[in-house]
Write a protein that binds this DNA or RNA. Structure first.
Lengths: 147, 147
DNA sequence: GTAAACCTTCACGCTGACGTCAACGCCAGA
DNA sequence: TCTGGCGTTGACGTCAGCGTGAAGGTTTAC
């Protein structure tokens, strides 16, 4: 039940440095034992798991705060509060924008690559295999030594 | 033709700080006039435009280097060299991976949002509009003042 | 009793692409 | 000659999410 920072880090698959960082941010404050050691319980593990899950989805730490607050407020799930739902919705919109941007860019880069490859094939005869095997190099561009 | 740093920055739609940064990286070195002022020409403007275009596509500055070198080597286009094509291809793969990741995440977040919204609707009767318009609020939750 | 394994705080480092001062030099117009 | 607007270098700040020590105290196992 009660555990120290190393144990919690192991259970959550993270590091003690990360947990201290979360505490600096006020995201996951710890109780202290008499000697100053941080001490956590299973509730903290749940909060931490919530944070890590959202992190894996690309949420920033600040964006996880409503979920953590929601859990701490006693709700059974971190997304049982309106503020969390808002974060979900904003993230969805953000993801959609981002995906659309990347798809535009992907298409553009693909086009550029295809064009550049064609031009390279045209400029360096004998380099990459020609699309039409019967297309001979032009005479005035033929290299010396080639019969 | 010849211009100083402010003029080049204006023509390329960037800042003098950015141009000094590029020079620090060795990406866009400048000639100097007698008084130590940086001086650029139209060729530098082309190099800079190449860099900015690739930047807009999400290329890192180091990734633009082959293109810039290619132009400086006298090629008519920055992507006329094999090294540039390699960068294109790596970027395409990177974009595909990234898009796939984001789409998985988008689906996951969408699922979570839908589920959380349903649970919120179930837990808070009378909050969001019910799916079935004939479902009346329960008596013990009815507000005072409502006939 | 001692060594290993834990814990503490402090504080700098890393990545990328610049922004933002400070403190000063150079030059043209009124 | 003064003012304003350019230019220069150097160096620190920003954003996020930690990593990586250093220097020391505490607990645990043998």
């Amino acid at each position: 039940m009660a555990m120290r920072i190393g144990e919690l880090a192991r259970q959550a698959g993270t590091t003690t440095r990360t947990l201290r960082h979360y505490e600096e941010l006020g995201l996951l404050p710890a109780r202290r034992t008499g000697n100053g050691y941080r001490t956590y319980d299973d509730g903290d593990l749940r909060l931490l798991q919530q944070i890590r899950t959202l992190q894996d989805f690309g949420f920033g730490l600040e964006e996880t705060r409503p979920f953590v607050d929601c859990l701490r407020a006693g709700h059974p799930a971190g997304d049982a509060c309106p503020a969390s739902l808002d974060v979900y919705r904003r993230k969805l919109a953000e993801l959609d924008d981002c995906i659309a941007d990347l798809q535009r860019i992907r298409a553009e880069v693909g086009t550029q690559l295809a064009r550049a490859e064609l031009e390279a094939a045209a400029d360096v005869p004998g380099g990459p295999p020609p699309l039409c095997a019967f297309a001979p190099p032009f005479e005035h561009e033929r290299e010396p030594g080639t019969p």
